[in-house]
Amino acid sequence: MNVQVLNKKKKKKINVRRALFIAGMLAIPLIQFGIFFVYVNINSILLTFRVVDPITGTYGWGLDNYQDFFYRFTEYPDYKDAIFNSLMFGLNDLLLVLISLVLAYFFFKRIPGTQFFRIIFFLPSIISIVIYTMAYSLMFKAGSGPINVLITSLGGEEPDWLLDENLARMLVMIYCLWVGTGYNILIFGGAMANINTEVIEYAKLDGVGMFRELFQVILPMIWPTLSVAFIGSVTTVFTLFIQVKLIVGDSFGTPRTIAFLINDNVMSNQEKAATIGIIFTVVATPVILLVRKLIDYVGKKFGY
């Protein structure tokens, strides 16, 4: 009887210690998560209903921020332009995935110098985006940028890269392709390297050419990696802004995106920033989920 009581006591003591251990390990992570995810996201919804009087600084509650958003959306071109620019960058990201996929296929074929390419292609992931965007925009600097020097030496006229919105957008799109291609080649190439070589050999012996090999043999096998990249392209529509900010800056010809509008107002008008953010979150969530479903459907339908 005494032994039983002692065992029970010992077990209880261990359970209490374990509970304390679990609580101790989770306490700070949960408090941080509660504040910086749960509270912040709830507050970002509340902020959209907060109306600040610009003269007195006092605030009340209402739908004014939403009214302002829809008024601006219908009467001014900036929000529509932002959606257009964001969609263009999303499509550009899709193009990036496709270019990288084709190049990764050849990379997978083990062209000479694979190790050299791996090291160089990973550089944009290592070096700060500030340095890469700065170095890139210096290539197009009026008067001294090598690209501009090349254009003028060929008898052309220096373009106003940063003043014309179309050119500025193109500049940012080329940048995204430039830094993203190498990294995606490595990711897709890594996925292709995991494919069983016998599958490729059988296909080859059956007389399958490069095109069919890529789209009918390899693509189904790397579909999960590819689907992550496709979803990334959709996410880009709602999140890309830092490249625009660092390459073009904030001027008349800046191709502003949805995320640019949000982040541009973070310091000065959090209510406005939150309203734009919430409205586009409401749009983004079903779009992303739909794309996920669509990708899964395509994967299943075509045996991917």
Binding site: I262, G277, T281
Partner: peptide, 29 residues
């Protein structure tokens, strides 16, 4: 422990939902 599965699921869901508005509320906080 009680709540383990809920916490894990919540973390996964939170990483899927786009939180593009959160930056303004974080700045305010």
């Amino acid at each position: 422990f009680p709540g383990n599965k809920f916490l894990y699921t919540f973390v996964i869901v939170s990483s899927v939902v786009p939180t593009i508005a959160a930056i303004s509320a974080t700045y305010r906080l």
